[in-house]
Amino acid sequence: MRLNLQQQNLQVAFIKGLPFTSVNEHGDKADGIEGKLLSTLAEYFNFTTSFIDCLDDFGALKSNGNWTGLIGKIFNKVNMDSI
């Protein structure tokens, strides 16, 4: 049985670093190992992606309990409109 996500847009937080991940300057196409895997999954499950560049910040836990960087964006469900 194939899951059809009906072109739902999934946001993907990433950190540039070939050979794993790179995104073009328009932010609409990923390359590298993870980019190709994501593209294959998107085609198979019928979804689109938008990318959130975390600017080489994986994230750290701050003393107030909040996360920074990539983990913070995922944890806080940051969307593209707020960047």
Rank of each mutant, 00 (worst) to 15 (best):
M1K: 12
R2I: 13
R2N: 12
L5F: 11
L5A: 04
Q6C: 06
Q7A: 12
Q7K: 14
Q8K: 13
N9V: 15
N9K: 14
N9M: 10
N9S: 13
Q11F: 12
V12C: 07
V12D: 09
A13I: 10
F14P: 00
I15N: 06
K16P: 04
K16E: 06
G17Y: 05
G17I: 05
L18V: 06
P19C: 02
P19V: 02
P19D: 05
F20A: 08
F20D: 08
F20W: 11
T21N: 13
S22K: 08
S22D: 08
V23I: 06
V23R: 02
V23D: 00
N24F: 01
N24T: 01
N24R: 06
E25F: 03
E25H: 05
E25Q: 10
E25P: 11
H26K: 15
H26T: 09
H26F: 09
G27F: 02
G27P: 00
G27C: 02
D28T: 14
K29C: 08
K29D: 00
K29E: 03
K29I: 02
A30Y: 00
D31L: 09
G32A: 04
G32H: 01
E34W: 05
E34V: 11
E34Q: 09
E34P: 00
G35N: 02
K36D: 12
K36V: 00
L37E: 12
L37P: 03
L38K: 02
L38G: 01
S39V: 00
T40V: 12
L41S: 05
A42P: 03
A42T: 01
A42L: 07
E43H: 11
E43F: 07
Y44D: 07
Y44E: 10
F45C: 02
N46H: 11
N46Y: 08
N46D: 14
F47E: 04
T48H: 10
T48G: 13
T48Q: 13
T48Y: 05
T49I: 06
T49K: 04
F51E: 04
F51T: 03
F51S: 01
D53P: 03
D53T: 04
C54V: 09
C54L: 04
L55P: 00
L55D: 14
D56A: 11
F58K: 12
F58M: 13
F58L: 11
A60T: 14
A60L: 13
L61G: 11
K62V: 02
K62T: 09
S63D: 15
G65A: 10
N66W: 06
N66Q: 14
W67C: 03
W67D: 05
W67R: 13
W67S: 07
T68G: 07
G69D: 13
G69F: 06
L70E: 14
I71W: 07
I71S: 01
G72A: 06
G72D: 10
F75D: 12
F75H: 10
F75E: 08
F75K: 08
F75G: 00
F75T: 06
N76M: 07
N76G: 12
N76K: 14
V78M: 11
V78R: 00
V78D: 15
N79D: 15
M80S: 14
M80Q: 13
M80G: 10
D81M: 10
S82P: 00
S82M: 12
S82Q: 14
S82E: 15
I83K: 04
I83G: 05
I83M: 14
